[in-house]
Simulated assay, not measured.
Amino acid sequence: MTVGGIISALIVGLIIGALGRLVVPGKQSIPIWLTIVIGIVAALIGTFIANALGVGDTSGIDWIEVLIQVVIAAAGVAVAAGAYGRRQVR
Rank of each mutant, 00 (worst) to 15 (best):
V24K: 00
V37N: 03
I64M: 11
I32P: 04
Q28I: 01
I7F: 02
G85H: 10
V24I: 08
G4D: 15
I36M: 06
R21F: 11
G26M: 01
N51P: 02
V41W: 13
V70P: 01
Q88E: 06
V55C: 07
S59K: 02
I30K: 03
K27H: 11
V41S: 11
I40D: 04
V71K: 00
Q88V: 09
G17C: 09
I32K: 03
A81M: 00
I61M: 07
V12Y: 11
D57S: 10
E65R: 15
N51L: 14
V79P: 00
L67D: 10
I32T: 10
G5M: 11
A9D: 05
G46M: 09
V23Y: 14
G17V: 09
Q88Y: 05
L34V: 14
T35D: 12
D57L: 04
L19E: 14
L67E: 10
N51Q: 13
D57C: 03
S29F: 08
V79Y: 06
L53C: 12
A78L: 14
G46H: 07
D57M: 08
E65Q: 14
G60S: 06
R21A: 08
P25K: 15
G76M: 00
Q28H: 12
A78V: 05
V77A: 03
V89F: 02
V37L: 13
G4V: 11
I45F: 15
D57N: 11
R21V: 01
G56D: 00
G56N: 07
G26S: 10
R87F: 15
I30P: 10
G54N: 08
G13T: 06
V41N: 12
L14W: 13
L19Y: 07
A18Q: 03
R87L: 14
I61N: 09
G20H: 02
N51C: 09
V37R: 00
L19T: 02
I11H: 04
G13L: 12
G82L: 08
A43V: 06
V12Q: 08
I40Y: 01
V37Y: 03
A75P: 00
